[in-house]
């Protein structure tokens, strides 16, 4: 692990971008041609391509189609993971719009080390999809979490009935209902108990019972108490 972390952290910016393009195109099931790559990276693509071929990160076939080799795929996976987790973080926690998150996430992905990436992933409850709905590649932390324990941070509708948890944040896509919830006492730091899931979710906050629809409960993220789950 140690060596890949070093190599990805030191990845030149363009290399990351090329890996990202190759990954996304493959995800869409489309081929990437050497010429297109050249254009998309400010005209320096071919130099990098040559370097990447030398390092066995990519392979090019007779039709000039570029594909990721095994080493390149591993690197690309990490770049994509950092990028999409950053998007989730910006969208959910900071409440920015999906489109805004795109640029910020590009900046982010170059600073994150693997350790921090995993912490963010754990904080967000090992999300599976980015805000655009594309899959986020799993990291070690996800595999470990799957095997061992529930995520610490879950949306309130995932609590067990009767379980108490602490509000972590409200995923802020709609400001008005965030205001309504906070007037009722659902604000970060406050305790919350899930009383019922069906037909509507009923949450207890202090001495107030609040009925919300599933979609609202899904956007209230809570921190489970250690040991409260099995």
């Amino acid at each position: 692990m140690e060596d890949t972390e070093h190599s990805t952290a030191r990845l030149p910016e363009h290399l990351g971008e090329i890996l990202e393009i190759l990954w996304t195109m493959e995800e869409k099931g489309q081929a990437t041609f050497a010429g297109t790559l050249h254009e998309s990276v400010n005209g320096t693509g071919t130099d990098f391509l040559a370097a990447m071929l030398r390092e066995n990160l990519v392979v090019v076939d007779e039709a000039h189609r570029v594909r990721l080799a095994r080493g390149g795929r591993r690197l690309a996976e990490q770049v994509i993971r950092r990028h999409r987790l950053a998007e989730r973080l910006i969208c959910d926690v900071l409440g920015s719009h999906v489109d805004e998150s795109e640029n910020a996430a590009c900046e982010f992905e170059h600073i994150l080390s693997e350790g921090i990436t995993n912490s963010i992933c754990t904080l967000l409850g090992h999300p599976q999809y980015c805000p655009h709905g594309r899959p986020i590649p799993q990291g070690d932390c996800c595999r470990k979490a799957e095997a061992e324990l529930h995520p610490i941070l879950v949306s309130s509708d995932q609590l067990d009935v009767g379980e108490t948890a602490t509000v972590a944040y409200l995923s802020a896509q709609e400001h008005t209902w965030v205001l309504r919830l906070s007037a009722l006492g659902i604000v970060p730091g406050n305790h919350l108990r899930l009383l019922q899931k069906w037909p509507s979710c009923v949450l207890q906050c202090d001495e107030t019972e609040i009925a919300v629809e599933r979609d609202v409960a899904r956007n209230i993220y809570v921190r489970r108490r250690a040991g409260s789950h099995h």
Binding site: E174, V212, V216
Partner: peptide, 10 residues
């Protein structure tokens, strides 16, 4: 449509 958020009094 708007979200359903309602206080439930005792």
């Amino acid at each position: 449509r708007s979200e359903f958020i309602v206080e439930v009094p005792p």
